[in-house]
Simulated scan of single mutants.
Amino acid sequence: MIGVLVTFMQPEKFDRSTIARIADELRGPFEGMAGLRFKSFTLDEDGVQARNFYVWDDEEKARSFFTKEIVDKVTGIYGVPPKIEYLDIVGFVDNSGT
């Protein structure tokens, strides 16, 4: 498994309702996506960083998703380019089934 942290940062605060709307509008294509285990849309406490966290089955699927076209698209949606970090998941706890 591999995690991907996608961070959008701007000097002004993101509007929470805007981030919630983005999450609602964009969730559909991710539901049932091959290779994607989880995706979360988040906003930090200060409201200046919107972060999306993905958990993928493998690195190849994760890296192949983040094409230039996808990066350009999300830059347009969030208004700032993302910082994309790939994280080796060395342990994982999933309580969703309990």
Rank of each mutant, 00 (worst) to 15 (best):
V4M: 07
L5W: 01
M9W: 12
M9R: 15
Q10W: 14
Q10F: 11
Q10P: 04
P11H: 05
E12C: 08
E12M: 11
K13G: 08
K13N: 10
F14P: 01
D15R: 14
R16I: 08
S17P: 00
T18K: 13
T18E: 12
I19W: 03
I19K: 05
A20E: 13
A20N: 06
R21S: 14
I22T: 02
I22Y: 11
E25V: 10
L26K: 14
R27T: 09
G28F: 10
P29V: 04
P29G: 12
F30L: 12
E31V: 15
E31Q: 15
G32D: 02
G32L: 08
G32E: 05
M33T: 07
A34T: 14
G35H: 01
F38G: 00
F38Y: 12
K39Y: 00
F41L: 05
F41S: 07
T42H: 02
L43Q: 05
D44N: 13
D44I: 10
E45Q: 15
E45L: 15
D46I: 05
D46M: 13
V48C: 10
Q49H: 15
Q49K: 15
R51N: 06
R51V: 14
R51S: 06
N52F: 05
N52D: 06
N52Y: 05
N52G: 04
F53Y: 09
Y54D: 03
Y54T: 11
Y54N: 07
W56R: 08
W56K: 10
D58F: 08
D58G: 09
D58I: 02
D58S: 08
E59N: 06
E60Q: 14
R63N: 02
S64D: 12
F65T: 11
F65S: 02
F65C: 06
F66D: 00
T67Q: 00
E69Y: 02
E69G: 04
I70Y: 09
V71F: 00
D72E: 09
D72N: 13
K73I: 02
V74S: 02
V74Y: 12
V74D: 05
T75P: 12
T75F: 00
T75H: 02
V80T: 08
P81K: 07
P82T: 01
K83L: 03
Y86T: 01
Y86G: 00
L87F: 00
I89K: 03
V90H: 07
F92P: 02
V93L: 11
D94P: 06
N95H: 09
G97V: 14
G97D: 05
